[in-house]
Each structure stands twice: as C-alpha cells, then as structure tokens.
C-alpha cells in the first residue's frame, strides 16, 4: 500500500530521436515509506514508461551500478531514501561522462584509466599455489583496507570539477586504487605505477577540492589518498636530488 505520491523529474536522452537531453516529469508516482529512488525508477519502468533506461544490479550499495545525480548531488540511487527528500525529486545521469541513453553514461574512459594504474598486486616474487598464501599482518591489512572498499560507482568522478574541466585527469577512484596497491605489503608495483600516478595528469592535476571524498558512499576518501601519494612522490623527488639518494 502506498504511503504518498511523489513527482520525479528525470533527464532523458534518446540518441535515435533527441538532439539533446530534456527533462521528463513523472507525476503522482506512488511510493512506500522504505523506498529508495531506484525503487521509484523501477516503478516508472514497470508501470508508467518502459522506455526509461538506467543501470542497476544489487540494490544494496555493493555493485556500484546505480550512481546518478539526485537533486544535484551524486548518489547511489539504491541508497537515496525517498523519505529524505521532498515531494519533487530531480534525477540526472552522472555528470562529467557522456550520456549513452537517459540515466546511462559511457564509462569507457574510467575503465581505461583504472587499468592504466595497474590495480592488482604486483608481487616481488611470484608464488605458485603450492607455495601457499602471501602472508600479511592485521596492521598491514589495515593500512590500505579503507581504499580497497571502492566499488567503482563513479560518484567521485561526477563530483570532481578537475575531471569535469579536463578529463585527461586520471581521476579520484583510479588514484585511490593505485594507492591501495602501493600501500599493500605484498606489492612492489609503486615504481611501475609511477609514470601514470605521479604525472601531471595524475596526482598533480588534483587541487584538493575534496568533493570526491564528500560524495563517496563507501568512505574511501580518494582526496586523502591523492594527497598522501603527493607527499610520497615529493619525498621521492627530493631524494633523487640528494647525492646518494634513491
């Protein structure tokens, strides 16, 4: 049984017929008390307008597929409870990415950048399965665990003006994940990542607006990760100037 009705203003773009995006208003959408914005969108898709497109999968803040801009704020639509909003809600696709269709954006650029930072453990010596696991203490795990919580939802890219103004910037999530592997005691890949991470398009493009960390639904703090890499990179630079330094 519905508890109230809301109005959803959704930015639509149908590439085969539209020359540019436009807002479509869905009025009197019935919603339950415990619904999130994603539930309302699914109601519209099932009952009102089958042509509306959006991505989603898990409905529990894990898959990172349903990122959208809700009332001007990048959010996971499965984590945006309708009860926290008024009767009128505006939903747009993530900013700073091309719109494929309606609320679906093209994320190829992010995937390319993520791969460029080699987001995997590069061990000093490769072990076979028979040699057993790479051991790690709880303290070593804790040093990078926060950065491993990233779900690639791209809310940080949507909030980042640096990426919006110049998308050659590697971007928050990719750099946070680079930091996650750099900090991992099992990894020796920092030098291998340096060309991308410590470049002008990498950490030095970031001016610490901090928006990425403010919108991150997993408290990863990409802005903090980037500043920490800057410190390490600056120390590397100074050491390289010192005779006998690394």
């Amino acid at each position: 049984m519905s508890t109230r009705e809301i109005t959803l203003k959704v930015l639509r773009y149908r590439p085969e017929v539209d020359s540019k995006p436009f807002f479509q208003t869905y009025e009197k959408v019935p919603c339950e008390e415990e619904w999130v914005v994603l539930d309302a969108l699914n109601y519209i898709k099932d009952e009102i307008d089958r042509t509306l497109s959006f991505r989603w999968s898990c409905h529990m803040f894990v898959c990172g597929s349903c990122g959208m801009v809700i009332n001007g704020e990048p959010k996971l639509s499965c984590k945006a409870f309708l009860r926290d909003y008024g009767k009128k809600i505006t939903v747009e696709p993530l900013a700073n990415f091309p719109i494929e269709r309606d609320l679906v954006v093209v994320i190829d650029d992010f995937v390319e950048k993520l791969l460029s930072v080699k987001p995997w453990v590069i061990p000093k010596v490769k072990k076979s399965l028979d040699d057993g696991a790479y051991n790690q203490t709880p303290a070593q795990l804790k040093s990078f665990k926060q950065y491993s919580m990233c779900i690639n939802c791209l809310l940080c890219y949507s909030a980042c003006p640096q990426y919006g103004l110049d998308n050659s910037f590697v971007g928050p999530a990719s750099l946070a994940l680079a930091h996650r592997y750099n900090m991992d005691s099992r990894d020796v890949g920092r030098k291998a990542r340096e060309d991308v991470v410590a470049s002008a398009e990498g950490i030095w493009e970031c001016s610490f607006v901090g928006a990425c960390s403010q919108v991150c639904p997993k408290d990863v703090d990409p802005a903090g990760a980037i500043q920490q890499i800057k410190i390490t990179s600056a120390i590397d630079y100074v050491m390289s100037m010192v005779p006998g330094g690394k």
Binding site: Y13, E16, K20, P98, P161, G164
Partner: peptide, 16 residues
C-alpha cells in the same frame, strides 16, 4: 541502432 553519446560540457568560468 547507432550510438550517439551526448557530452555535457562543464562551464570553465562558472563551475565553482
């Protein structure tokens, strides 16, 4: 169906 992604540009002068 051909693709035709739409790019929304951020204003360089008023974004802030």
């Amino acid at each position: 169906m051909s693709r035709n992604p739409y790019v929304r540009k951020m204003s360089k002068t008023t974004w802030f």
